[in-house]
Design a protein around this nucleic acid. Structure first.
Length: 652
DNA sequence: TGGGGTCCT
DNA sequence: AGGACCC
């Protein structure tokens, strides 16, 4: 590869002088307005960490639903479309549609400020995530037909398009060499962030934006001669790589169409050779558009970015790095890998150092079933045991509903993948978390405390009355809190969680991810758990923070949402049109081999290069053939009846 | 300053 | 159990 260990030595001293003494690399001026990140100032001194051997072949897309919660709410209530609208949780804007954004609303802004900026804005409470979870499931079902899918949060996922790209190229014909669809990021583009607090949200400033009404800008890249290093000049591209990216872009466009016809949701996408770069570029031409990143442009895109924009760098790491004068990815490229590992720890250090060079060796790997489900509410005040009980009366039924959802997902996953009996997802642990600003609490800060106990068996028992289950949950949670909150309290938030689920299902054909052997008791096959019946008085203030000391609460979030919909004159029902077309997509890939095992031995900065050969070997042989085809696998009649047996008659 | 999650220490 | 990270 690039070798060049010679240049590494002088880096440390020179770097400190240069960065500390020199001009601030980021933010050439501008308070409050858009921040434009400067161009790459030059090549680094420390060596580029090598990519794995697969890097040029792999094609990864990152998909991101635009203003997800807002779009979902617009689907549910068409009256909201075209008007400025935002989704709130308590008194925060969590997302705003584009009409509201153009009035200046931003993510995580207070509702007060939002209303000041845009008095006509419609605010919709998004504290109950149920509808968003349901939509997210359909989105993933549509995307999974195009390759292995890895979810990140509710509204984002990566899809490994490599196998489908290979298939199309092998098949020949027009689809094997399509024109580029969407944007191609070139080194002519400048990147900016319009929110000083969120430097990771970046977008491209198109040099020809003045007349970019068609939303397409893709200059034909010059070709490089045979055998030339495709990274030597970022805008001179290797034809084979460019072609694979173009095929990937075509697939991504189809995938976005598929999601849109299945759900009505619009999304943006980024197409690149690895997960990190795909994610970085997916937002460059948001909304409803996609961006492809040629291999050679990666370093140019990344280096002017503030370190905070690199995945893996949060508040803590940013502070540490900035304290040492490292503000941008380009700065990171001038220090050695071992230094970064010293500052941030080996794990984060490696990841961040790689990211600064646009290197990411992670495979797209489906997320296994969640280890925890939790429900939370926050409020202005909660100082008495009776108000604690009022909070628990709200969130305990919600947690049970989540646990049951998890059970159903597990049935679908395990029976759908060939299990004889779904083991159930009975939770063994109950965790309670809280934020206490009272005398016994942690005082200021936002830190939370937590404690856990054994999950009462009654809570797992789907065969009994929902109220008895909720009571068991509340009782156990209260016992934990009583033993922790001994010196008086003033809670701002309370969270209950269920986790440490019992072992997984028995399968016919044993595949990794599903352990054989064990089906344990307690998980009744029973069905028909209803949600807690509505109880308590009408509850108005949609966006008010509940104050349990003054009698707020008493209604689960699901019920609360239904009520607020009734008040808005909606059916109160589930989704209108558009959301039911999702059929198909019975993921056959949920249990796709979690390939690899990139040995995770302690490798710090220095041993890194020595170990690289192993990394290359283990990741050089993957993915092709894991995704069988675009046709969802049929489920046998036997399995279908098993499924309906375990799931029982559909509720809702 | 929300309501979720993950992983590491 | 708590902290850091992600959305």
């Amino acid at each position: 590869m690039e070798g060049a260990a010679s240049a590494e030595k002088r880096s440390v001293e020179d770097f400190r002088v240069r960065v500390h003494g020199g001009p601030h690399p980021l933010r050439a001026g501008s308070e409050g307005g858009a921040t434009t990140f400067g161009r790459d100032d030059d090549a680094g001194w420390a060596p580029r960490p090598p990519d794995d051997a697969n890097a040029s072949r792999r094609i990864v897309a990152h998909f991101d639903v635009d203003a997800f919660y807002s779009q979902v709410e617009e689907l549910r209530d068409p009256r909201l479309r075209g008007r400025p609208m935002a989704v709130t949780q308590k008194f925060l804007i969590v997302t705003a549609n584009y009409a509201a954004r153009s009035a200046g609303l931003k993510k995580l802004m207070s509702t007060t400020k939002a209303k000041a900026l845009c008095p006509e804005v419609a605010l919709v409470s998004g504290e109950d995530l149920t509808p968003y979870r349901a939509c997210a499931k359909k989105v993933r079902a549509a995307l999974e037909r195009f390759g292995t899918c890895e979810k990140l949060g509710l509204d984002e996922c990566w899809v490994d398009l490599t196998a489908e790209v290979d298939r199309r190229i092998a098949a020949g014909g027009p689809a094997s060499d399509p024109p580029l669809v969407g944007h191609r990021h070139s080194s002519e583009h400048v990147v900016e962030s319009d929110n000083a607090h969120r430097p990771m949200d970046i977008r491209a400033v198109d040099p020809e934006r003045t007349n970019a009404s068609d939303g397409v800008h893709h200059p034909v890249p010059p070709r490089c001669e045979d055998g030339a290093d495709p990274d030597a000049n970022p805008d001179v591209s290797d034809p084979a790589r460019e072609r694979r990216l173009r095929v990937g872009a075509a697939i991504a466009a189809e995938a976005r169409d598929a999601v849109r016809s299945a759900t009505g949701l619009r999304m943006s996408a980024g197409i690149a050779h690895n997960k990190m770069l795909a994610k970085l570029v997916s937002g460059l031409h948001k909304p409803d558009d996609q961006t492809t990143l040629p291999a050679g442009v990666a370093a140019k895109l990344v280096s002017p970015l503030p370190v905070r924009a690199l995945p893996g760098v949060g508040h803590g790491a940013e502070r540490t790095l900035v304290h040492r004068g490292v503000r941008t990815a380009a700065d990171l490229r001038r220090v050695t890998r071992s230094e970064v590992c010293e500052w941030l720890g080996p794990r984060v250090g490696r990841k961040v150092h790689d990211a600064a060079w646009g290197v990411d060796r992670e495979e797209v790997a489906p997320k296994p079933a969640p280890n925890f489900v939790t429900c939370e509410d926050s409020f202005r005040s909660c100082t008495t045991w009776s108000s604690v009980d009022a909070v628990l009366a709200v969130i305990a039924p919600d947690l049970l509903a989540r646990m049951d959802e998890e059970y159903e997902d597990e049935v679908e996953r395990t029976v759908g993948a060939g299990a004889l009996i779904p083991a159930g997802r009975a939770a063994r642990t109950l965790t309670v978390k809280w934020r206490d600003v009272g005398p016994g609490g942690k005082g200021t800060g936002w830190s939370r405390s937590s404690a856990s106990t054994t999950m009462p068996t009654l809570a797992n028992d789907r065969s009994i009355d929902a109220k008895r289950r909720a009571d068991a949950l509340r009782e156990a949670a209260t016992r934990v809190l009583r033993s922790e909150l001994t010196r008086g309290f003033d809670l701002r938030a309370l969270n209950v969680g269920a986790g440490n689920f019992e072992p997984k299902a028995v399968t016919l054909n044993k595949r990794p991810g599903v352990e054989a052997g064990c089906v344990s008791g307690s998980s009744g096959i029973d069905v028909g758990t209803g949600r807690a019946a509505p109880h308590g008085s009408a509850f108005a203030a949609m966006n008010a923070r509940r104050d349990y000391d003054r009698g707020g609460g008493r209604m689960s979030k699901t019920e609360e949402r239904a009520l607020s919909e009734r008040e808005r004159g909606l059916g109160g029902g589930v989704f209108g049109g558009g959301l039911n077309g999702g059929g198909g997509g019975e993921s056959s890939d949920v249990f796709a081999e979690p390939l690899r095992d990139q040995d995770e031995d302690e490798e710090d900065g220095d041993s890194f290069y020595a170990d690289l050969a192993d990394v290359q070997r283990s990741s050089a042989m993957p993915s092709i053939g894991r995704v069988q085809s675009l046709v969802p696998r049929k489920r046998g009649a036997e399995q279908a009846s098993l499924l309906s047996f375990f799931k029982g008659p559909s509720k809702r």
